[in-house]
């Protein structure tokens, strides 16, 4: 993906660069490699590194039996689906209005939306907890998802995309008698596909990993996502051996990690695209 640069290092400098790059890479991958080692070996090998160590899945079995991880997984999948579908609908409609309409108060409204980039729901936990309690949805997937349904970041990203689509296209569609929503659905959404994919990957990994707000707003197995479930498991089972906690850790991150390894290119490019727009 990179073009050759005339200033790329040569000779000894290149050897040094390569050594530095790989040292850093090993340091960065070490925690994950270590977790894989511990989780797949019996606990007496958690600090003894020898090729003779037997492989085992017992740690995963023990963790799976010790806490309702299947339920947590279902909750997390429901959560990221709910949040993403809400975001896609709400952000598409709002972004279209900001990109293609001129109306009084547009500037102020856009500034009000962008405020959410700085004052994220993540830091307004006390008041949002009050709201969830008032509307009676505490301890539900809905309560975890509601504050994130409309995302300023998504609106901003899609608005930039829609702005770059030439107006002639929707004029042509309007001549054919298409309504506003039909134009949006038939012209804009298909053209924005790569941006939708980018946004979806960023959103799913954010909400899969989110912890503080779900911790505050849930208190039973019925709604806890994986991150909170893992924390409950590892803090109450401190006596349990390390290999089992590591296995639980890998199970929590597993689906996302496998998805990332399979679609590495899309992931990296999506994060890039989401960042530079």
């Amino acid at each position: 993906m990179s073009q050759t640069n005339i200033y790329d290092s040569r000779g000894l400098a290149r050897v040094l660069d390569t050594a530095a790059a790989w040292t850093l890479a090993v340091l960065w991958a070490l925690p994950l490699l270590y977790a894989v080692w511990t989780a797949f070996h019996p606990s007496e090998f958690s600090t003894r590194f020898t090729l003779a160590a037997p492989l085992t899945l017992d740690n995963f079995r023990a963790a799976w039996d010790a806490a309702p991880f299947a339920r947590y997984l279902v909750n997390t999948v429901l959560l990221v689906t709910l949040v993403l579908s809400g975001q896609l609908v709400l952000c598409t409609l709002a972004a279209y209005a900001f990109a293609k309409y001129d109306f009084p108060g547009k500037g102020i409204l856009f500034a009000l939306v962008l405020m959410q980039l700085m004052i994220m729901p993540d830091v307004l936990v006390v008041e949002n907890y009050r709201t969830m309690s008032a509307i009676g949805v505490l301890d539900s997937t809905l309560a975890i998802g509601l504050p994130y349904m409309a995302s300023a970041f998504g609106i901003f990203l899609l608005r930039q995309t829609f702005k770059s689509i030439p107006k002639e296209l929707d004029e042509a569609a309007a001549v054919e008698g298409a309504s506003t929503l039909q134009i949006l659905w038939k012209v804009y959404v298909p053209l924005g596909k790569p941006v939708y994919l980018a946004y979806a990957l960023v959103s799913v990994s954010y909400h899969w990993n989110n912890f503080l707000w779900p911790l505050i707003v849930t208190n039973t197995t019925n709604s806890r996502p994986l991150t909170v479930g893992l924390q409950v498991f590892s803090s109450t089972e401190q006596g349990v051996d390390w290999s089992i906690i590591t296995a639980a850790t890998l199970m929590t991150s597993g689906p996302l990690l496998i998805g990332f390894l399979l679609f590495q290119r899309q992931f990296v490019q999506s994060f890039m695209r989401a960042g530079i727009k």
């Binding site: 960065w28 991958a29 994950l32 270590y34 912890f211 893992l230 590892s234 590591t246 850790t249 990332f260």
Partner: peptide, 18 residues
Amino acid sequence: RLCYFVPTVLPMIAVANI
């Protein structure tokens, strides 16, 4: 690139355990 980027997709709460 993969090694450098991989911590980004892991949940903080999970890697903190490691």
